[in-house]
Design a protein around this nucleic acid. Structure first.
Lengths: 209, 209
DNA sequence: CGATCAACTGCACCTATGGTACAGTTTCGC
DNA sequence: GCGAAACTGTACCATAGGTGCAGTTGATCG
């Protein structure tokens, strides 16, 4: 009952969201006009307001879609890594390598994170959006924290480690790496940050030798 | 209350920039109206356009002011650290500790980076802004790279290291840490990321024992 | 004392955009 | 062929960004 989808209009909404997302990532939410979105999709203003109650409703739709996609990427990433390896540390290192490769092979020249975009315009949005955004970030923390806990259980760290910070570092490097990559127009920055993170994890937990 | 000796208008521009910056960090550039800026400062619209040719000129003024401030912070940071230590590695580790403390004691509850804000709205700005922003990022890379080169010269790394990525990691963690801190409303995230970075540097270069 | 210039104020005006309202039309499933 | 989803078309309003320009104030200087 969640997906409707048989009707032809079912993908109009998706196309509106896709057009809106790329515009928002390029100019911000406030500067993205409804007019340009409908022009890109080839629909009228009335059609837009059939799909979205108002602009705030569009923002919510954008974020939900983005978080769904985000979650799917993480699922795929760890799923593939787990198929290849049983050991938690090696599995995590494999996943990070896959992640770095994924980030290096992004089709888009100038990707961006909608959560970051919304965060820097947060006064435009209501509490619901803020909470959705926070939940998305906490999902990253939780996912990486689980892995690190499993690793730490088998490979005790030589030094005391702030595991929560190390879990957050993944999302931190992605957000920061996207920004540096955009500003410097260098798509290699993000994947190289991921690989450095991988080095940190290995140096922290891997037994010497 | 009144400032002495200089022309009274000389700080009107600064007050406009300060009001604009906090609004831009909260809502983005496009959503920041000139009306609200002049209302905050207590000036008329004509007065605003006396100081800034148009809104793009305001953007340039904001970024230049921000980058100046940014540079001063880095100068202060490394300057203080260098006074305390001669060894490049220990000096860098001290600087990172100072940096983490500085980030932990920020007066503002919800800080943000103007460069990041502009980056996520880059289609609003002209090439000059883009170039200024890139120069600012390259300054961070260069500053940290110099330190790492000096460290690597005295303490050869056990593993091959991507020194450029490690230099960029500082700015990356700051940008990402600010985002996570804002989204999760947790001011401890950024300083803890800096300390993890410090651990990475130490683990990479410090001789065992 | 009067000229000059920076630092404004006041006003008029045009346009774009978000958003509302609502009546009509097409397309599809049943 | 009935009803509902998925639209189109038109009209309209309030707000705000932005431009242009003429006028005013007040400190400073010769």
């Amino acid at each position: 009952m969640l997906e409707v989808s048989t009707r032809k209009g079912s993908d109009t909404r998706e196309r509106l969201l896709a057009a809106a997302e790329s515009a928002v990532l390029a100019k911000g939410f406030a500067a993205t006009s409804i007019e340009e979105i409908i022009a890109a999709v080839g629909i009228t203003k009335s059609g837009f307001f059939y799909h979205f109650k108002d602009k705030a409703d569009l923002a919510k739709g954008l974020l939900l879609r983005y978080l769904d996609h985000d979650k799917a990427v993480l699922d795929d990433l760890f799923g593939r890594a787990d198929e290849l390896n049983d050991d938690p540390l090696h599995g995590f290192l494999v996943a990070l390598k896959l992640f770095a490769e994924m980030m290096a092979n992004l089709p888009e020249a100038h990707p961006g994170c909608l959560a970051a975009s919304f965060c820097y315009q947060d006064q435009l949005f209501n509490r619901e959006i803020h909470e959705l955004n926070a939940e998305g970030m906490l999902e990253w923390r939780q996912r990486f924290r689980e892995r690190l806990d499993a690793i730490a259980a088998r490979y005790p760290a030589r030094q005391p480690v702030d595991l929560e910070a190390m879990a957050d570092m993944a999302a931190t490097l992605v957000e920061g790496g996207l920004i540096l990559g955009r500003v410097l127009k260098d798509a290699t920055i993000l994947p190289r940050q991921i690989l450095l993170y991988r080095d940190l994890v290995r140096a922290t937990f891997a037994p010497p030798g």
